[in-house]
């Protein structure tokens, strides 16, 4: 049985969508904390190539090109991690997509893309990982939702709906798994400097910064540190919560 969360020994961590943006920051954070990290995305990036060839990460970084909205590819990815390292200690559901546009002009295709990845893919992948965590009775799950799921944002109805749904998923799953030493929490980031926020124009970004008590947009590192806190072995009494990390924007 594995009880490897924290206590100095490396954990096995899955981060979905770790090739760039926030996911890449989360992967780096767990590589820095000495853990084994598996990630996937549809295409490989320079960051992935560097992790794969860096001797410091030899034997503790795994990448698979996979579209997790495709259930078969998602299943194969999780299986590859289990084949390589056995027990999964931490799952960070980070892969997500936003499509903006007011609902009245939104296409069904865009709705499907957003729901298929943010919600259905996350549920499918989590189910597989939960089965593994149940077999060894420990684990930490963090779902990356968004302040947009809490406050609503014009032009992000479907995206906001998936993020609010993820928070509901977090709470129900926390209840299901609490007795098995598996915690489930959401982190709801505010606006970050990643490609996803490139959909916003200069004026919108300026306005967000002006309204943010901390006076700046977020960095992937701001979020990664909050995740590290939630998955800490000692934090086994913290579950079913949504931790907002947004520089105070929504306070």
């Amino acid at each position: 049985m594995t009880t490897s969360i924290g206590s100095g020994s490396p954990r096995t961590v899955i981060v979905t969508g770790g090739s760039r943006g926030l996911g890449a920051g989360i992967v780096q954070s767990f590589l820095d904390s000495g853990d084994r990290v598996a990630t996937c995305s549809r295409s490989e990036t320079q960051a992935v190539k560097e992790w794969e060839t860096n001797p410091d990460y030899a034997g503790r970084f795994l990448f698979r090109a996979a579209d997790i909205a495709d259930r078969e590819q998602s299943t194969q990815f999780v299986q590859a991690v289990i084949d390589e390292w056995g027990a999964i200690d931490v799952l960070v559901n980070n892969a997500g997509v936003a499509r903006d546009g007011i609902l009245a002009l939104f296409t069904d295709e865009d709705s499907d893309t957003v729901i298929d990845l943010n919600l259905k893919a996350t549920i499918h992948l989590t189910r597989q990982v939960v089965r593994n965590m149940l077999a060894h009775r420990s684990g930490r799950i963090v779902n990356i939702s968004s302040i947009v799921g809490l406050t609503g944002y014009r032009g992000l109805t479907v995206y906001g709906a998936t993020k609010a749904a993820l928070d509901g998923f977090t709470r129900a799953l926390a209840r299901e798994l609490g007795s098995r030493k598996i915690t489930v929490n959401s982190v709801a980031p505010g606006y970050l400097k990643t490609e996803m926020s490139h959909g916003l124009d200069e004026a919108q970004l300026d306005q967000i910064v002006r309204r943010t008590p901390a006076g700046r947009l977020g960095d992937p590192d701001d979020i990664a540190r909050a995740i590290q806190f939630l998955v800490d072995e000692r934090n086994d009494w913290l579950t079913g919560q949504v931790l907002v990390v947004d520089g105070g924007l929504t306070c």
Partner: peptide, 13 residues
């Protein structure tokens, strides 16, 4: 149900 799920996962392993 949770123990059944555990049994299911362990058998699959």
């Amino acid at each position: 149900s949770l123990e059944t799920a555990e049994l299911s996962a362990i058998l699959e392993d």
